[in-house]
Amino acid sequence: MERAELVQLLSPEGLTLLDSLPRWDSKADVVKTVAELRKQGHPPALVEAVLSQSRLRTRAEAKFGEFARRMLFTEAGLEQATRLKVAALHAGRFSRAGLRHVADLGCGIGGDALAFAAVDLEVTAADSDEVTAAIAAFNLTPFPHAHVLHAEATQVPLGGIDAAWLDPARRTTAGGTTRRLSDAADYSPPLDFAFGLAERMPVGVKLGPGTDRDVIPADAEAQWVSVDGDVVELAVWLGALRRPGVGRAALVIRGDSAHELVAAADSADAPTGPLGDYLYEPDGAVIRARLIGDLARANGAWMLSPGIAYLTADTAFDSPFARGFRVVERLPADERQLRQALAARGIGTLEIKKRGVDVDPAALRTRLKLRGEASATLVITREEGRHVALLVERL
């Protein structure tokens, strides 16, 4: 978003027009909507700005719920913003640690700062981008104890501040296109600065879930978080924000429930063995946290093959940390024979899951030439090193 566009949006006319628009519908006739707004006398630049913002507000509902209807966003800011239910957990950790004033350094559009302010923490938020900082200030308007600075994270005065939260920018926008940064060295602020703050105060740092584990400080708690099956972040906690004895954690949020698997360090893998009556797919947060072995041992399960994140057991178990399947039957791993087996069973709709094999599920589904009324789930993986194809049903 350009500065001129933001000025248009923040005008009384802009905000009134934006709030008057119905919820964005991608199937609506945008050309007709533009024509109607122009006919009402609104300038072209303002019309473009409010329609763009209306689209972002609708996308933001997945992260901010009903609050999205009263917020402003940028494309990159929304992509990196923390989901509100996860931000609330961040805020709770600061509050339980007895910290009262938090610096949100690299606050983006203010998602985490909103959660901090909502639990009565004093917040000093800062962003290096002028437009983003202005949007954060708008979003934090309901909270008089939240203040936003247009400043580099490394330049924010920290006197009187108890703790810091950093969400380093992992995306860059150029020519209207947002690109994810793959090298942690390119993040803003740099990770050396973020982790270095822990020498002065308790610190929490939000990173992408696929961040190279080598950058995690040895004295940190690393917590991978998944929401409804998607791993959304790696939170690194240092100082008083780290829980005693916890070095690795997998927080699994589904709907309104949250469950956590914790350990002092990466768990050793469970032994491997032959396929049992049940197959289990650990949640992505458990996989990222390398706690599959602990999950297996707690439930009498074992690994199907070394280094592959499937567990198997002879007895069914219920766990928030894994999705379970009953093994219906083995099918031939050979593609031609597999096609014949599926045709014989009248399977026309097939979900294909795979681990440890070089298979493109979409391409394979096409080659299988499925016909029939039945639907099924197929797992293609390895059993003690050998390719297997398993027909399974969800528990």
Rank of each mutant, 00 (worst) to 15 (best):
M1A: 15
L17N: 04
D19V: 00
D19Y: 01
D25W: 00
A28N: 02
D29G: 02
V30N: 00
V31E: 13
T33G: 00
E36N: 09
V47G: 00
A49R: 01
S52Q: 01
R59D: 00
A60P: 00
E66R: 13
M71L: 07
T74C: 08
L78C: 07
E79Q: 14
L84I: 09
K85P: 12
R93F: 07
A97M: 12
G98Y: 13
I109Y: 03
G110H: 13
D112V: 15
A113K: 13
V119K: 07
L121Y: 10
V123P: 11
V123F: 12
A126E: 04
V131Q: 14
A133I: 03
N139C: 11
L140I: 11
V156W: 06
P157Q: 06
P168N: 06
G175I: 04
T177K: 13
L191W: 03
G196Q: 06
M201G: 08
V203W: 14
V205E: 13
D214N: 14
D214W: 09
I216S: 09
D219Q: 14
S226T: 09
V227W: 03
V232S: 10
V236P: 11
L238K: 12
P244Q: 13
G247C: 09
R254H: 13
D256V: 09
E260S: 09
L261S: 07
L261I: 06
V262D: 05
A263F: 05
A264T: 10
A270R: 09
P271C: 06
D277V: 06
D277P: 04
Y280V: 04
P282V: 05
V286W: 12
A289C: 08
A289Y: 06
L291E: 07
N299D: 12
I308H: 07
I308F: 08
A309L: 04
P320V: 02
P320G: 01
A322D: 08
R323I: 04
R323M: 04
R323G: 01
F325W: 15
E329K: 15
E335Y: 03
Q337A: 14
A343W: 09
A344H: 08
E351F: 04
G356C: 05
D360G: 04
D360L: 09
A362F: 03
L368Y: 11
K369F: 07
T377N: 05
T381R: 07
E383C: 12
L391Y: 15
L391G: 03
L391H: 14
